[in-house]
Design a protein around this nucleic acid. Structure first.
Lengths: 360, 360
DNA sequence: TTGTAAGCGTTATCAA
DNA sequence: TTGATAACGCTTACAA
């Protein structure tokens, strides 16, 4: 042992292999394999099978998943494509997914694309190389040639929180339209008539969806249907939300409430209110979307639309599992119900505390 | 095509294999392999190598990582063991880790243990079976026989945010002691003399560490060193923090400020303040730890200790990569500097707004 | 410098 | 019902 040689030696016990089990049980590896696999167990003598199982347990045998994947081209693994793991919206979805996947004997390979299409492409390729059997994709661009191609090739795939326009990829998404309607109706009931909208990027299906729903809702409720009141944020971030709100204000748009495409955008509005001394909800009411964690602790606590994160994930996983079992199936879209949770960021316009409604 | 047969057929192009490249280049697969691998490229004629590389590129050849892993027992993959992905503290660390891993050609397999030791065990085993070459572990229990055993067996491993007591496992952790000292000194400078502490579970190294640091700090600054002022939360959660705060209050402990083991615990205190009509920071000042996202938006904005999440992850990854390259290396501990970020939850005791300091 | 052949741990095909 | 044997796609002694 030289002075440099400090690290622990590799003393990891070599894992037991199939052949070890076979030898110990006095059978051929092929027989052991058949005995161990529930699907082929009937091909082997019941006593022999029992013995093999027993020995395998004693030796603590676990099949080598790598060898298995090489041989069968199946890995018992699915890929999770997440646009941004630091967005608190996604981890609960991941939990939901895993809660369904694991009882089915599958594990999830999580990749974070950082919202970068190139990175997404390369990470998905690497997932494919690693023989994932299916993909759950949470990145929300509307067009995605690469993924579309994969799906067309028969790669089992389900989209969460996103829908591809003219393509029949199964997806599970929150009922965006209903959420927006609930938000707008809530504001209308409070007495608002001029409601603005800060939508997410129209390049994302969610952004497009919610904005469209907003337009319809406002029209259906006979509220001000003024194009000047709807803007689009460049991305799903606080900064983008702030920019959009500033733009709305600077354009001297008249509104007393704003419905945003998601909570982050709403937080951006908060920032602008602080900058400009605008009182929320005194002068402007705000409704977010998603119900991220910790929103109830904000100043003011944000009124928002709650989406059932866990259920979204769980349903997506179930759908994928289904799709992997019976690949020939028509694509379904699952819409999960959302609920408005009213907190402190919404109030009647120009309420009794003496602040005037915001006009420009 | 039967009526049931709707799904897309599997038309995925078969990936190119080494033998395809070899054939197209007119060489034996072994030669192609050597040409493709930078480490063995010198063994092959420069022209031949060039040709092979060229052909490989044209065919879009990518080595099959599964076959590679089976053959070499290396997967170019490391396992990330995270206690709770929904805790916003961790995703930035994951980002930091990946930022170092990927340029080195490694990918991260993330597992979420849900803070469950059994689950941790089984997930780590599955990671091992999948031939991960190393482990980055962020679960914070102080004792962990299974992981300790793995490390002793020579499995490359680094701990983040955690240290194992008497075992020489390399780790990168925030400078907890310094953070606590900064917090206590800040409060002392504001005039507080009776400062309470709600520590994290003593079974976690971070919990034990920060509590110990608190005791020292309080003594060094000649503040009240009263055992009744230090409690331990049962877990790192808001509920546990709330319970601890209630207990402190119910025991009629006298204090005007509290330093908590992490931000979640501090949020629990906020809940109790709301319950009991206690004004923060008017009656009690609070300091958290970690600087989770969105803290600046709370009511009141939480004063806390910022830890350099990204750097923690990046350093850990670098350390692991080192350890994998040269396994024989003495364990190092890296302490990353933390900074106090003062916001609104701390103020002088019994400040000018007329509220009295909290006594019981 | 290149080719041959064995083998990583499994499963699947074929015979016995 | 079981065993022999050949893959899966790759690397690596060893031989040429």
């Amino acid at each position: 042992m030289t002075p440099q040689d400090h690290g622990p030696p590799n003393t990891a016990p070599r894992p037991q292999r199939l052949r070890d089990v076979a030898r110990a049980a006095g059978v051929h590896p092929a027989t052991a394999s058949r005995a161990l696999n529930p699907a082929t167990r009937t091909q082997v003598n019941a006593d022999t099978a029992r013995r093999v199982l027993q020995v395998a347990k004693e030796l603590g045998y676990r099949p080598n998943p790598v060898a298995l994947a090489l041989k069968t081209a199946r890995s018992h693994t699915v890929g999770l494509v997440i646009p941004d793991l630091t967005n608190p919206y996604f981890p609960p979805i991941v939990r939901g997914i895993e809660s369904e996947l694991e009882p089915a004997g599958y594990h999830a390979w999580i990749v974070d694309t950082h919202n970068d299409p190139e990175r997404e492409h390369s990470r998905v390729e690497s997932l494919r190389e690693r023989q994932v059997e299916g993909l759950i994709v949470a990145t929300a661009r509307r067009e995605h040639p690469y993924l579309s191609a994969l799906h067309a090739q028969g790669v089992p795939m389900v989209l969460v929180n996103r829908r591809v326009e003219d393509l029949a990829v199964p997806c599970v998404i929150p009922d965006d339209a209903s959420g927006v309607v609930q938000a707008v109706r809530h504001l209308a009931e409070l007495g608002h008539t001029r409601i603005a909208h800060i939508g997410g990027p129209a390049t994302t299906s969610t952004g497009a969806m919610r904005t469209r729903a907003f337009r319809h809702a406002v029209r259906d409720l006979s509220l001000a249907d003024d194009p000047a009141l709807v803007t689009e944020a460049a991305e799903w971030s606080e900064e983008a939300g702030a920019r959009a709100m500033r733009q709305l204000l600077d354009a001297r748009a008249r509104f007393t409430a704003v419905v945003t495409g998601n909570d982050l955008l709403a937080l951006g509005c908060y920032d602008v209110f602080a900058e400009r001394g605008i009182d929320c909800p005194g002068q402007v009411s705000v409704v977010g979307f998603n119900d991220m964690p910790f929103l109830a602790r904000l100043r003011p606590a944000l009124t928002t639309v709650r989406v059932p994160h866990h259920a979204v994930g769980a349903e997506a996983a179930r759908m994928l599992l289904d799709g992997m079992a019976t690949p020939a199936r028509t694509a379904r879209s699952l819409l999960l119900p959302v609920t408005l949770v009213v907190r402190e960021s919404t109030a009647p316009p120009g309420r009794a505390d003496g602040t005037a409604p915001l006009t420009a």
